[in-house]
């Protein structure tokens, strides 16, 4: 029993506010190092949150999961061929693999008698297994680690080589590429906002309006693949899915309109990134995991107390026995696009 107690104490370390909150920002070197980590976290959460909002309303949450697994063979091949993390081959390989995965899933769903979920499960697990095998076979002599791909290590981001353009040092490569992708995501979402909205919420209307629905779909898939590729080094292929889903689902407990949900990604990404950083600092565990834990906590808060369908208000309504409650909830469905 005493051994147990001792384990528990070391399992959750003592909370030292000075070490957690102050030390990381005490010297210039620390600020530069940790600042990069937090910036990367914010960029990842922001890009994933924006793309994820559309993914969630299109009922493609698990497609995000599938693509995030499906990019693995592309990454591995790019790495094996180039022998290093060259930026463009990596993006190219991963995007091709991700799109191929999504195309295979849709093809199976259409052409075979399989149920849609089974088609999805079969495809992405096969892609993933292929990627893992490639890494295990050829990754040994190259510097690539399957576990790092799986849950990422945002804490090592500042170690990456820095990228320079015309003699100007731009910063660590993952942060620069993430920044570019985030800007691309923001621009695409702003420019194609209407098209994305119409195709997400009313497919038939979009078709009658003559919108290129298939093109928009694959454009979104490409955006998704780009986001996943640029963030996998930080959070790994499995935790990307939470960065995609959590922001929009959490925001949905507070707002009903799509623009508000999209804007919500910004503060949430700050909360996830900074909160995750401090949590990981305290527990001395992986930062990406801690970021998702903070995201889960925010989600739990939203689920419990959110004004738009939170448990507490449901309970209150049930206690007061208001019959009008049902209507209020069904109105809220507008944002779900049913």
């Amino acid at each position: 029993m005493s051994a147990n107690r001792q384990t528990k104490e070391t399992f959750i370390p003592d909370f030292d506010p000075i070490d957690t909150f102050v030390t990381p920002w005490s010297t210039h070197a620390e600020i530069a190092w940790n600042g990069q980590i937090v910036t990367m976290g914010i960029l990842v959460c922001l890009a994933c949150g924006l793309v994820g909002s559309f993914i969630v309303v299109r009922k493609l949450a698990l497609m995000g999961d599938a693509i995030s697994h499906g990019i693995l063979p592309g990454l591995a091949l790019a790495f094996i061929i180039m022998k290093s993390w060259a930026l463009f081959p990596m993006f190219f390989g991963a995007c091709v693999a991700g799109l191929l995965c999504s195309f295979c899933i849709e093809w199976l769903q259409k052409k075979s008698i399989l149920k849609p979920d089974a088609a999805l499960g079969v495809t992405f697990t096969t892609f993933f297994a292929f990627g893992v095998l490639l890494i295990a076979m050829y990754g040994g002599n190259a510097h690539i680690d399957a576990e790092c791909l799986l849950y990422g290590e945002i804490g090592l981001i500042p170690l990456a080589e820095s990228l320079s353009l015309g003699g100007v040092d731009l910063g660590a490569r993952p942060i620069v590429s993430m920044f570019v992708v985030t800007v691309l995501v923001i621009i695409s979402v702003t420019v194609f906002y209407r098209q994305l909205m119409v195709t997400s919420f009313d497919f038939t209307l979009a078709k009658t309006l003559g919108l290129p629905v298939t093109l928009i779909h694959y454009g979104l898939m490409l955006l998704l693949a780009l986001t996943i590729v640029s963030s996998f080094e930080a959070v790994g292929v499995i935790l990307v899915i939470s960065m995609l889903i959590f922001p929009s689902v959490t925001a949905n407990f507070f707002f009903r309109r799509m623009p508000a949900i999209l804007f919500c990604s910004l503060p949430l990404s700050f909360v996830y990134s900074i909160g995750g950083f401090f949590l990981a600092r305290w527990l001395d565990c992986t930062i990406a995991g801690a970021m998702v834990l903070v995201a889960s906590l925010c989600f739990a808060l939203g689920w419990a107390f959110g004004p738009n369908g939170g448990l507490a208000w449901q309970l209150l309504d049930r206690l007061n026995d208001k019959p009008g409650n049902k209507n209020a909830r069904s109105e809220g469905c507008a944002v779900e696009g049913q």
């Binding site: 009922k59 949450a61 899915i241 939470s242 998702v292 889960s296 689920w303």
Partner: peptide
């Protein structure tokens, strides 16, 4: 208790639990 769809709910639970597990394993 919420309007979250099946696929989102699966993704939430999957990644939330997984993150918890990863954090615990790195601690261990």
């Amino acid at each position: 208790t919420s309007r979250i769809r099946q696929d989102s709910a699966l993704g939430l639970v999957l990644s939330g639990f997984y993150a918890l597990g990863i954090c615990m394993l790195t601690r261990i």
